[in-house]
Structures are given as structure tokens and as C-alpha cells.
Computed example of a mutant assay.
Amino acid sequence: MLLFLNIAQLVLYIGALGLIGQGLLYVLAGQKRDTNLFYQLIGIINKPWTLLARFISPKQIIDRQIPFVAFCIVGVLYIAVTLAKIEHCISIGIEACQ
């Protein structure tokens, strides 16, 4: 169980960092961000989260706001997994979680 929680936490952490990186490149690259290689690579990494955000969000949310929605989803899931990990570690003992 602890291994599963660690893997889930790592996947969510990578997703959050990817979304933050894409947001920074969105600001720094300006109008030519669609031709930026790194922006496109980070977009590929973030594709599962943006697809999930598009599926969950209502149609009134425009496409430009979907990465922010994805970041909020990843953030909430990361907090949930972290709390589950803390609860699991308390139930089995702190020494067993190391």
C-alpha cells in the first residue's frame, strides 16, 4: 500500500511540475510558444491531465483555462494522496514507513 501511495504521489508531483513549467513558458515564450520545442514537450507530458480536466469541467470553461483547471485537480489529488499516506503511516507505525 505504501508503495502505491508513493508512486501516486510521484506521478502527481511530476504532473504538477509539468503544469507549472508549461505555465511559465506560456508567459516567457509569448506569441511563439506554439513553435517552442520545450513548450510542446511539456504539453505532451501534461496531456493526460488536460484531457481529464476537459472531461470533468463544464463546456463553459474555455480551452485557455483548462491547464489551470488541470493544475487544481492535480493539487487536490496530491493533497488527498498525501493525507492517505499520512493516515496509512500512522496506522502501521511511523517506523514501518521509512
Rank of each mutant, 00 (worst) to 15 (best):
Q40W: 00
A70N: 05
Q98F: 07
I44H: 09
L83T: 12
C72K: 14
L41S: 14
G30M: 06
V27K: 12
I86W: 08
I61F: 07
Y39S: 00
L25M: 14
A8K: 09
V76A: 14
G30Y: 05
L28V: 13
C72M: 13
G18D: 05
T50V: 15
Q31H: 10
L52C: 06
E87D: 11
I90T: 14
L10H: 07
A96L: 08
Y78K: 12
L37I: 13
S91T: 11
I86M: 11
L51G: 02
I66E: 05
K59I: 12
Q22L: 11
I92D: 04
G93V: 00
Y39N: 04
R33M: 09
A16R: 09
V81P: 00
K59E: 10
G15N: 02
P48L: 03
M1W: 10
K85C: 03
Q22Y: 01
L25D: 04
N6Y: 10
G43I: 04
F38A: 15
G18E: 03
G30F: 06
Q9P: 04
L19H: 01
L12M: 06
R64F: 08
F68I: 12
L24F: 14
K32G: 13
N36Y: 02
L77C: 13
V11N: 04
A70Y: 03
I42M: 09
L37C: 00
G93F: 02
F4W: 10
L10D: 05
T82L: 11
V74H: 02
Y26H: 12
I94R: 13
E95R: 12
P48M: 02
C97L: 01
F38S: 12
H88K: 08
V76W: 06
G18V: 01
R33V: 07
D63T: 08
A8N: 10
T50K: 13
L83V: 15
Q65V: 11
I94D: 05
M1T: 13
N6F: 11
P48G: 03
C89N: 08
K85Y: 10
T50P: 00
T50H: 03
I45Q: 12
I92F: 02
L51W: 14
I66F: 01
I56E: 01
T82M: 10
Q40E: 08
F71T: 06
L24A: 14
L12Y: 04
A29F: 01
L52T: 14
R54H: 06
F71V: 04
Q60G: 01
T50N: 15
V11R: 04
A29H: 00
R64S: 11
C89F: 03
L51I: 09
A80S: 13
A84I: 08
R33K: 15
Q9E: 09
F38W: 15
F55Y: 15
